[in-house]
Every structure is written in structure tokens, then in C-alpha cells.
């Protein structure tokens, strides 16, 4: 049997005596959407940052398709086919939408060291195709610095998809978007993921988004995994209700188990 797309084993990290992440293990298969939820400060961001090499773990291992990537810097993890989006969007505001994607394509092709030739004229077709894919085709020539927040999130997705990743790490992909936009954004991501059988790991506070789109959910609390399972099982899990979900007064009516928009 081939190794899973992403395998995390016994990952731990402490800051000044506080255990941000403790002994976290899970796997993720190609084509799967895995949600990581939990209260703020539960260690979700730290966990993400360890997966793409921004933070070095104290202990544990991260393997991508069986290859150990623990301790590699983000740029090397990226070259192994990991796309990432950030909680607060990170794009290049001084460039147009198209140029943002072109830079990602140039970087992926290893052509960033060329000292001559016009970068704005390379990979135009590929860049435009990606912009179209995320619904930004009409805005390809606009400066990223003046985009609305939702559009920035889309652009980030295009950039993350530029180099045909095998795994997407999305930290709160819909934070700061209007509810309708949220659903649309996740639907788009889910479609892309299933079409190209990408693995997607995402954190999210919007329970409606989580329960509608995730195949599986991991719940983190104080750095530990306290529950793992299908969205339906997680909703009914008493430990999760006690620490995280509460009585369900503050989120809407997610569809019942199994009724996900899953073709």
C-alpha cells in the first residue's frame, strides 16, 4: 500500500513552557477535505506552521507521500507540491493579479534567477487560465493592492494552485468573507480538490462551512486532538460540545449528516 499523502506523527511544540501542540498525529488521503477546528489558541495555527516548515517542531514527524519533510524550510516544502493560503491573505500588492500568478509559475519552473527577459510576458496563458479558474479572469490586469478582501482570498487560491500542488493547506480560507461568499469559496475549493484529487487540510471557525464541506473533522483543544471523525459524529460528540460547540445557539442549521453537497 502506498503511503498516505500527508502523515503527521506525534507532532509537538512548546513555547516558553506552554504546550502549543502536543502529540498530534493524523493522516490525510488524496482527494480528501479534512477540517481542523478548535477554540482560538488550541494550536491550529502552530500545527499548520509546522506542516509547511515555518515553525520547527520540538518532536514528531511530518511526511508527504512517505517523504520526511520535518524541519525543511517553507520554500523547500513548497517545491514538493504544497500550496498554502494564510489566515490574513499574503499576496504581492504592487503587482497585478496576473503577475501574482506569473511569479508563482516562474518560481515553480525554477526560472526566478534569470536576470533578463520580461517576466510579465511569461506564462501568460497559464496565469490567465488560473485566474479564470478561481473566478478572477475579469480582474487579471488589476493591481492586487486594490482588490476587495474576498477577491484577495481567491487570488491566494490561484497562487497556491499555480504549481499543481498535491496538498493544499488553507488557514481559515473564508475568514472575513460574507456568508454567501464563504459557501461559494469552499464549494470552488472542494470541486478543484476532487477534480485533481488534491488533499486539502483547512481550519475554519464557520461551523456551517465545516459541516457542509469536510469529509472528516479533527478537533483540537489545548494542543491535543480531542476528537476525530465525520462531521455528523463530531456534532454529536459530548466532549466537543462541552469544550467547543456549546449548545449550538450561535450557528445555523447545517445539513444533517451525510447530506453534504458531495456529488
Amino acid at each position: 500500500m502506498s503511503p498516505p499523502l500527508l502523515a503527521v506523527e506525534h507532532l509537538s511544540k512548546a513555547y516558553g513552557g506552554v504546550h502549543a501542540v502536543q502529540d498530534v498525529s493524523f493522516t490525510l488521503a488524496a482527494g480528501e477535505l479534512l477540517a481542523m477546528i478548535g477554540p482560538n489558541g488550541a494550536g491550529k495555527s502552530t500545527c499548520f506552521n509546522m506542516l509547511n516548515g515555518q515553525v520547527a517542531p520540538d518532536a514528531g514527524q511530518v511526511a508527504i507521500s512517505g517523504r520526511d519533510v520535518t524541519g525543511l524550510p517553507p520554500r523547500q516544502v513548497a517545491r514538493l507540491g504544497i500550496g498554502r493560503t494564510f489566515q490574513i491573505t499574503a499576496t504581492f500588492p504592487s503587482m497585478t493579479v496576473r503577475e501574482n500568478v506569473q511569479v508563482a509559475l516562474l518560481a515553480g519552473a525554477g526560472r526566478m534567477n534569470r536576470l533578463a527577459g520580461h517576466a510579465g510576458a511569461s506564462f501568460v496563458a497559464e496565469a490567465d487560465e488560473l485566474c479564470r479558474l478561481v473566478g478572477m479572469g475579469h480582474a487579471a490586469g488589476r493591481p492586487a493592492g486594490e482588490l476587495a478582501y474576498g477577491d484577495l482570498k481567491r487570488l491566494e487560491l490561484a497562487v497556491a494552485l499555480a504549481n499543481k500542488p498535491v496538498l493544499l493547506l488553507m488557514d481559515e480560507p473564508t475568514a472575513g468573507m460574507a456568508p454567501a461568499e464563504r459557501v461559494e469559496m469552499m464549494r470552488l475549493t472542494a470541486d478543484i480538490a476532487r477534480e485533481s484529487s488534491l488533499g486539502v487540510l483547512f481550519t475554519e471557525h464557520d461551523m456551517d462551512v465545516v459541516f457542509e464541506h469536510a469529509d472528516r473533522v479533527i478537533v483540537l483543544d489545548r494542543g491535543r486532538i480531542i476528537a476525530e471523525g465525520t462531521p455528523a459524529a463530531i456534532r454529536e460528540n459530548p466532549a466537543v460540545r462541552a469544550t467547543y460547540l456549546g449548545e449550538g445557539l450561535t450557528f445555523g442549521h447545517a445539513p444533517a449528516a451525510g447530506a453534504r453537497a458531495h456529488a
Binding site: Q54, F86, A107, G108
Partner: peptide
């Protein structure tokens, strides 16, 4: 942040 995460 973005530059490093696309491999620069």
C-alpha cells in the same frame, strides 16, 4: 511569507 511559500 507568500514568496517563501511559493518556493522563493
Amino acid at each position: 511569507l507568500r514568496a517563501e511559500s511559493i518556493g522563493l
